[in-house]
């Protein structure tokens, strides 16, 4: 092989996250879809939807193999080992339903307890998984840290960080839409971290009306790429 390798533009890691300032706090919107808060040593992920395939199989629906739980946990594992947070917040819909939580396979349970060891772990409840979960960690309906509220579904009470909508967006040149963060000065909506989760286009009125005019979307993938939300709302389907 005599192919010339060009300067490693991709591997620099310079764009592995985008820095957001929310109500005066500096946060990292990471390319993998997780949110890291360096000052607090806090990692937040939303909408893991663990056990989705089991739930769909239970309801007699389409055929999902049971491996997406492993996939999601492996990605979460990587995010945790990169940032070594002292606290992890799962921002709701961590399980597809409560049966999925209690029916989690043994190896997945072990994997979770390994991730939980030595750090605070907080389950925020979501619309798919209300009620207590028998899997270690603390269970809360919502939580406030450093003036920021963490809850599953966005409310008018800002500043807050939420999930639930699985926002997705694309810019021209992209082949398909990617999960993204949505952020304005007081509100942050996280992308879904789980594998095989669908999404809502950021051009959807539900999301468009919730965010301020100067909001940005941070696309996830190989890099975290910020783009003005208004530039995505030009009627592209």
């Amino acid at each position: 092989m005599t192919l010339r390798a060009r300067p490693g533009w991709a591997k620099s890691g310079a764009m592995s996250h985008h820095v957001l300032v929310l109500a005066g706090q500096t946060l990292h919107a990471c390319a993998d879809g997780s949110l890291f808060w360096p000052d607090q040593g806090l990692l937040c992920v939303s909408d893991l939807h663990l056990g989705k395939s089991e739930r769909i199989a239970r309801r007699g629906g389409g055929l999902f193999p049971p491996y997406e739980t492993q996939e999601t946990l492996a990605r979460l594992d990587r995010a945790i080992s990169e940032n070594d947070p002292s606290c992890v917040i799962c921002l709701g819909d961590s399980f597809d339903d409560l049966d999925a939580a209690s029916g989690l396979a043994e190896d997945a349970r072990l994997h979770l307890s390994r991730l939980q060891a030595g750090r605070d772990w907080i389950w925020i409840e979501g619309n798919h998984d209300p009620g207590p979960i028998d899997l270690g960690g603390t269970h809360l309906s919502e939580l406030a840290i450093g003036g920021l509220a963490f809850r599953h579904i966005a409310t008018p009470a800002v500043p807050e960080i939420s999930g639930h909508y699985h926002p997705k967006a694309r810019v021209s040149g992209m082949v398909s839409a990617r999960p993204c963060f949505l952020a304005d000065k007081t509100r942050l909506i996280l992308p879904a971290f789980g594998a095989y989760t669908g999404g809502l286009r950021v051009t959807d009125p539900v999301l468009a009306t919730m965010m301020q005019a100067d909001a940005i979307a941070v696309l996830t993938g190989q890099r975290a790429l910020p783009v003005p939300m208004a530039a995505l709302g030009t009627g592209r389907r």
Binding site: A10, V175, L219, L225, P226, V227, P228
Partner: peptide, 23 residues
């Protein structure tokens, strides 16, 4: 990578156009 480069250039352009590049 090629598409990533074009995409990054496109998002940068959109950010600059919206006056948000300093964010």
């Amino acid at each position: 990578e090629g598409r990533e480069r074009l995409m990054a250039a496109e998002t940068e352009r959109l950010m600059a156009e919206a006056g948000l590049s300093a964010l």
